[in-house]
Amino acid sequence: MDHPLLLAFGLLLVVEGLFPLLAPQAWKDTFSRLIGLRDGQLRTIGLIGVALGVALLVSFS
């Protein structure tokens, strides 16, 4: 593929789709628990995810 961004997006969709495909009840339970978190906790989780993603991108590029 000549478009690495599309390749990365495709890989993201595959990885994101595995959890509900293989363990749908656990996926639902996870989202039920996420609903109970405060906004600050969700932002912290998002920040950690973004920081890890940027670290991976920087280290492999």
Rank of each mutant, 00 (worst) to 15 (best):
residue 25 Q to V: 12
residue 39 D to Q: 13
residue 18 L to K: 06
residue 20 P to A: 01
residue 38 R to H: 14
residue 41 Q to F: 00
residue 8 A to P: 05
residue 14 V to R: 08
residue 23 A to N: 12
residue 42 L to S: 05
residue 25 Q to M: 13
residue 2 D to K: 02
residue 40 G to D: 15
residue 27 W to I: 04
residue 53 G to D: 04
residue 20 P to L: 02
residue 14 V to C: 08
residue 1 M to P: 10
residue 8 A to D: 14
residue 60 F to Y: 00
residue 53 G to Y: 05
residue 17 G to E: 09
residue 44 T to S: 10
residue 7 L to Q: 15
residue 13 L to W: 02
residue 38 R to N: 15
residue 3 H to R: 12
residue 51 A to N: 05
residue 52 L to K: 06
residue 16 E to C: 03
residue 8 A to N: 14
residue 22 L to M: 10
residue 23 A to G: 05
residue 17 G to D: 12
residue 61 S to F: 00
residue 36 G to M: 11
residue 19 F to W: 07
residue 9 F to W: 11
residue 8 A to H: 09
residue 61 S to A: 02
residue 28 K to H: 11
residue 4 P to W: 04
residue 1 M to E: 12
residue 18 L to A: 09
residue 39 D to I: 12
residue 7 L to N: 12
residue 57 L to A: 04
residue 3 H to P: 02
residue 20 P to R: 04
residue 50 V to Q: 02
residue 46 G to D: 10
residue 48 I to Y: 03
residue 17 G to Q: 10
residue 61 S to R: 01
residue 32 S to C: 03
residue 11 L to N: 11
residue 27 W to Q: 13
residue 53 G to P: 00
residue 30 T to P: 00
residue 6 L to T: 08
residue 10 G to Y: 07
residue 45 I to A: 06
residue 39 D to F: 11
residue 18 L to D: 05
residue 18 L to N: 04
residue 51 A to D: 10
residue 49 G to V: 02
residue 27 W to P: 09
residue 13 L to F: 05
residue 35 I to N: 04
residue 52 L to A: 11
residue 2 D to Q: 03
residue 41 Q to L: 04
residue 34 L to R: 10
residue 32 S to Q: 13
residue 46 G to W: 03
residue 22 L to V: 13
residue 2 D to I: 06
residue 38 R to P: 13
residue 9 F to L: 15
residue 59 S to G: 02
residue 27 W to L: 03
residue 41 Q to S: 15
residue 49 G to Q: 13
residue 26 A to Y: 08
residue 58 V to H: 01
residue 28 K to S: 13
residue 49 G to P: 00
residue 24 P to A: 05
residue 44 T to Y: 10
residue 3 H to V: 09
residue 59 S to D: 10
residue 2 D to S: 06
residue 34 L to N: 07
residue 5 L to G: 02
residue 2 D to R: 06
residue 23 A to R: 15
residue 8 A to L: 15
residue 16 E to K: 01
residue 54 V to M: 04
residue 7 L to M: 13
residue 58 V to C: 05
residue 9 F to P: 00
residue 36 G to A: 08
residue 9 F to T: 12
residue 39 D to P: 08
residue 25 Q to P: 06
residue 6 L to N: 10
residue 48 I to G: 03
residue 16 E to A: 07
residue 18 L to Q: 11
